[in-house]
Design a binder for these strands. Structure first.
Length: 281
DNA sequence: TGCCAGGCGACGC
DNA sequence: GCGTCGCATGGC
């Protein structure tokens, strides 16, 4: 499995749905295609992926090589979501949400990309976020292959003006993207250090960026920096919490709040059960 | 048409 | 500290 190859089978033992994981609103660059394939770019790897009986097939589309370890990390396969689920299911309401999409995992995305993607996400919808991210990559990301672009490095954005970002049609978020780029490119903000920094320090550091408040910081930490105890509260989650957990999240979620959050987010948005059991306002 | 979208900053109190 | 409003853009 660790052999360098253009096509890999990544074995998956439990709790994984590729489609649910890529479609649940945590990432914005994968495109669903015919035959169960998803095409996308992760860091500098252009590939397509598909779920098969015994795992995930990853096929390089460029003259690219990588190792299985890379994809194991990306799909968060080193930890047992069965264990997380068992803990969450101690609460009946969390169990409902957890069973609605048992194969969702938290991707371990590149931190800079996660940060910018969730800056773009504010007061926005998932379809439009995807469009803005795509235009950001096309405009400033550098080509990996013909018509295929990497996510732009902070250094590629730090010297730009909001006028130059106009083609993204990102609205008031353009200035926020540039401030993030300047802080990361200059070294004022060290994203990698936030993987292990005390959580409250990491939150505060991220919120020094203009346009990054509690929610976006929480998303960057959960989706980009592997901090599974983070719990982003967007409009859907506020709705879910008000109706399902007026007294707060049950203690059984401690340590895997982010996993609970992703189940609840998807449940509140997509499950007819949520509307039925917890009602419209 | 108006309302909403994986929020945040500015402002008034 | 807390509530309210405006913010660009586009889909419904």
């Amino acid at each position: 499995m660790n052999d360098t190859a253009e096509k890999l089978l990544i074995p998956v033992r439990e709790c994984f749905s590729l489609a649910d994981t890529l479609n649940c609103g945590q990432c914005f660059r994968w495109q669903e295609q015919d035959g169960g394939w998803f095409e996308g770019v992760v860091e500098r790897h252009w590939c397509r992926v598909r779920q098969e009986e015994d795992g995930i097939v990853v096929e390089a589309l460029g003259g690219d090589d990588w190792q299985g370890d890379f994809w194991e990390a990306y799909f968060d396969l080193a930890v047992s979501y069965g264990d997380f689920r068992e803990r969450l299911c101690a609460d009946e309401r969390l169990a409902d949400a957890a069973w609605f999409a048992p194969g969702i995992r938290i991707l371990r995305q590149e931190p800079w990309e996660a940060l910018v993607s969730f800056i773009i996400s504010q007061n926005n919808n998932i379809g439009r976020i995807r469009g803005i991210v795509a235009r950001l990559c096309e405009s400033f990301g550098g080509a990996i292959a013909a018509g295929v672009y990497a996510f732009p490095l902070p250094q590629a954005l730090a010297g730009l003006t909001v006028e130059e970002l106009a083609p993204l049609r990102s609205g008031f978020r353009a200035g926020y993207i540039l401030d993030a780029a300047k802080q990361v490119a200059s070294g004022a903000l060290d994203l990698e250090a936030l993987r292990t920094a005390p959580l409250d320090e990491a939150r505060l550091a991220l919120q020094q960026i203009r346009g990054v408040g509690p929610k976006v910081a929480e998303c960057a930490l959960l989706y980009g920096l592997g901090r599974r105890e983070c719990f982003p509260m967007d409009v859907w989650m506020k709705r879910a919490m008000t109706r399902m957990f007026p007294d707060g999240l049950p203690s059984c979620a401690r340590g895997c709040e982010g996993v609970a959050q992703q189940y609840l987010f998807h449940y509140a948005r997509s499950s007819p059960d949520f509307a039925e059991k917890y009602g419209a306002e």
